[in-house]
Design a protein around this nucleic acid. Structure first.
Lengths: 341, 341
DNA sequence: CGCGAGCGGGAACGCGCTTACCCTGAGCGC
DNA sequence: GCGCTCAGGGTAAGCGCGTTCCCGCTCGCG
């Protein structure tokens, strides 16, 4: 096989030196090549179908054009929306995204940080709920610190970590606002599908919701808070469990939309009409789920913007201190939580 | 800054040569290092937080550990499901996925193929509907041919292309089966939300459906086939359009699930109850959409398996001829198409 | 005790590219 | 007309690693 054509092939074909060829192709700083020669080189490159070796370039230049994105599960619309924003923003900057998915296995983030460090990625973006797990958090922190020390940039999406720039999501504030609005609609007896123990995002949302209702004089009964997986099936099981407890709740808050949809399915399977018999609210406002019936009340998060924001934050320069910007959600009321007469 | 620690740092720390250090760390072929030395090297690497430079390795070894995945829009659950399969399979093989999204801009695939060729990606996977566009297809073919000539592996997911291995989706067969089943349920007057002109996947699904019904003696009225975008909004608009034509169709086939959900929303907005007044069927069986109400009749595609299959196909070896394996869908009947009395 | 086989370790080269650094020649001011 | 500047082209030194070639040592066997 002819193998890949190298820059020296191009140089030979154009009858110039390597240096000139290199300069002609990617106009080096304040080193200009006579137009005629430049044309000759470019023509030769075209003729030979020259494709510069990104690895060699990375090596010689000492920096890559790669940014790493770590998520739990790319099939989850929450993460895929974020990823869409990241790839779009990266594309605009001429960067390329390598995607790593942990499949919810703890400890993978740290491992992936090391992989990306090996790749000499320009920046690492980590999206997704961490657990309240001191060891895991610590080792992740360490891995990130090592990466940053070697010149890498990092931004988190979701919960912050000490000394790391973060696009923080206003989970608590969103949950508070949601609670207020739902209380305002006349609901008084609440249930919460709270997600798994230790999941920080889930906890923030639950606590914001529960605390606010307590403040408003409509405390959530302890038995009406049920732990469950952060997934559709978790929502389904949780709802079934909750309904079986016969607690007469009239609004169930699932800490994310996917769970809420599972909960709605469980309600239907139990012959409770969502909206009429039991109201349901979620969190995230997943685009694909905006057409569920009845429409799901939720807290809208600008997921696609998070990616761009995170890249911007990471690339703002390691000179900058670790910055935390918070983006807040906005309550969207739909038919799943009709005003309560 | 201390900068990245290199292998020679490790070698010096362990008081051995570079060669030994290299051999100790990634046990080179039939060259073994004395256990004692190996331990010493590994310990030194650990102590120094050595992180091998993937670019340098790629260079020296002449091959990378990267595979490229090109999709239209990662936020689209169809693609994100495929991507999940790809990342999982890649992870298992110790490979890393770089994700490129075309945002539905034509010609980007070709450009991305060139980018990935620059990265010297081991393999390129392209998912997603191409258009019936001779020029675009041709230039993509050319780019792929160039990439393969330089030693790269390729697999497509969706429609095949000459001389390229493909995991083909049984769009036609799925549509045929769906048509038969729907006809069997008693439906006779059909409408089709057909997707955009020239979209091959959309066309195959539409044609399979329409042709089968014609064969069964229940031809779809020409006016009941409406072109629209391949998106949720396309489905919504298309359905609104179709309903406004007052054609008395009793089942509408949207050529994908996302469109079908849009269509259901349009039906509701027009006060037609899905299931009772008008039946709706889709294609794909997107996981996130399995809980829409009423449940959407569709053709289930094993999206997450496609990714693994595609990787396997691509990596099967360039020695192999271009292979096409077809995966077929399976009709799943749900409440959106009740038996017609 | 000598010699050859075999194995472990080291020096050096090459991967493809960028980028100092040097060198040549042209243009300019005095 | 001379020297100085500067533009532009070439040479070569790495970037960090894998790998080949070669040498020295040890062990086994005659």
């Amino acid at each position: 096989m002819p193998g890949p054509v190298t820059l020296s092939d191009v140089a030979r074909e154009a009858e110039v030196s390597l240096a000139t060829a290199s300069r002609a192709i990617n106009g080096s700083a304040n080193r200009t090549v006579r137009p005629e020669l430049r044309e000759r080189v470019l023509a030769a490159a075209e003729r030979l179908h020259y494709s510069p070796d990104a690895n060699a370039q990375a090596m010689a230049r000492g920096r890559t054009t790669t940014i790493g994105l770590i998520v739990h599960d790319i099939a989850d619309p929450y993460f895929s929306s974020i990823a869409a924003g990241v790839t779009a923003a990266a594309d605009q900057l001429g960067l390329v995204v390598t995607l790593l998915t942990t499949q919810h296995q703890r400890g993978r983030e740290q491992q992936f940080v090391e992989v990306l460090q090996s790749q000499r990625a320009r920046a690492i973006l980590i999206a997704g709920g961490r657990y309240d797990d001191a060891d895991g958090t610590e080792s992740l922190s360490q891995a990130l610190a090592g990466y940053m020390a070697s010149g890498g940039a990092v931004a988190l999406i979701g919960q912050p970590l000490p000394d790391v720039s973060t696009v923080a999501i206003g989970n608590t504030s969103g949950a508070i606002e949601l609670a207020q609005r739902m209380h305002g609609l006349g609901y008084r007896r609440f249930g919460v599908l709270a997600g798994p123990e230790g999941h920080i995002t889930a906890r923030d949302r639950r606590d914001g919701f529960v605390q606010t209702l307590a403040d408003l004089g409509a405390p959530v009964a302890p038995g009406a808070i049920v732990e469950c997986a952060f997934t559709r099936d978790g929502g389904y099981e949780g709802m079934r469990d909750l309904l079986s407890r016969d607690l007469a709740v009239d609004l169930v808050f699932a800490v994310n939309d996917v769970m809420a949809v599972g909960a709605m399915a469980a309600a239907r399977d139990a012959d409770r009409e969502v909206g009429a018999d039991v109201a349901v609210a979620g969190f995230d406002d997943i685009v694909t789920l905006r057409d569920v019936n009845p429409g799901l009340t939720t807290v809208r998060l600008p997921l696609d913007e998070l990616g761009a924001k995170a890249i911007e934050l990471a690339l703002a320069g390691p000179a900058a201190e670790a910055t935390v910007v918070e983006v807040d959600g906005e309550v969207v009321v739909r038919a799943s939580t009709p005003p309560r007469a």
